[in-house]
Simulated assay, not measured.
Amino acid sequence: MTPTQTANTSAAPSRKYLLVTPCRDEAKYARRTLDSVVNQTVLPTLWIIVDDGSKDETPQILKEYADKYPWIKVVTRGDRGDRKLGGGVIDAFYAGYDTINPDDFDYVTKLDLDLDLPRGYFEELMARMEANPRIAAASGKPYFTRDGKQISEKCGDETCVGMVKFYRTSAFKQIGGFVRELMWDGIDCHRCRTLGWIAVSWDDPKINFEHLRPMGTSHKNWWVGRQRHGFGQYFMGTGLSYMLASCTFRMFHPPIFMGSMAMLWGYLKSMFKRNPRYGDAEFRRFLRRYQWNCLLFGKTKATRDLNAAQAHIWNPGRSIPAR
């Protein structure tokens, strides 16, 4: 009997999963990611890679792999002049996602092209999600290498990380997918909780992975990248007290001190300029309540209590109007 069969030999659960990868100028890292996917213990049903106007050797590398593996499909977009974070990345994601019928897949994934995943990554995530049907989105933890050491990117357990968002398709459709703004990868996880779903990441060697380009460095430099995080937190609706606590927590995480200061400056600059915030006022109130509970009781307890409190509204078959 195989591990995916039950004692009464019932059929194994369906594990058809889709990968969608927006990328631009990733020649330096692409082969590492491509190789880590083609060597997975359970292969994707389809992998759509959206080349978002690359000027380096990325298109040639993608063609090489697409010619070899029939389940890899490349979608090419025109050059729009520069790497555009936030909304631009999600625009590219949807350029691939909109070419398929999501109902053909059990899981859908937004996957970056600068990761090195362990061989059993997707198989392990599917097994955990099969064991808990309330899990909407899940991931391992990202680490990067510096001076020969693996350094955690310090992502909370209550979020599925943005560089590899592995979603149950039904949940992805129910939350309305990704918003096309900075902090899309935080809004989606909180949106899951508003509907009774669970978003989670685990710090486990089975599913931890190497982020070849550390978070916050993909556009220009550390300072710009971390400022962008502050802009995004303000847009999402994060309160100032929570932002101060978050910056304090990250103060001794590389780049020491300066990374936290850049995040805080990005947030404060947005606040002083009265930049627009995410338009769902009820969502922002939900977020603030959760963040205050995190400050008062700790994030682990606050998340556990919220997930328990939201269980009664979880309805995986519910139809949500398009947002």
Rank of each mutant, 00 (worst) to 15 (best):
F231A: 00
D185P: 14
F178I: 08
A92H: 05
A131M: 04
M215I: 11
A308V: 11
K63N: 12
Y94E: 07
K273A: 10
T6Q: 06
F209W: 12
V50F: 09
D91A: 07
L240R: 06
P44D: 02
A12D: 04
K55C: 10
R83S: 04
D114P: 13
L111R: 01
R277Q: 15
R191D: 11
Y278M: 05
E210T: 12
L306C: 03
Q60W: 02
L34D: 05
M215H: 14
R288Y: 11
K220T: 13
I72P: 03
D35S: 14
S201N: 13
S36E: 04
L43S: 05
R32S: 13
W71T: 04
Y65H: 02
D103K: 08
S54L: 08
L240V: 07
L287P: 08
G298A: 00
Y121A: 00
G86M: 04
S260M: 08
R226H: 08
S170R: 14
I90Q: 03
D280Y: 03
D103R: 10
K73Y: 06
F257D: 02
F178S: 02
N101T: 15
R180V: 04
A308C: 04
A136T: 03
W265C: 07
A12G: 07
R128V: 00
A311T: 07
D104R: 14
T248P: 04
A245F: 13
W197F: 12
L306E: 10
F231H: 05
T169Q: 09
P255H: 01
Q40W: 04
T76H: 08
A95K: 07
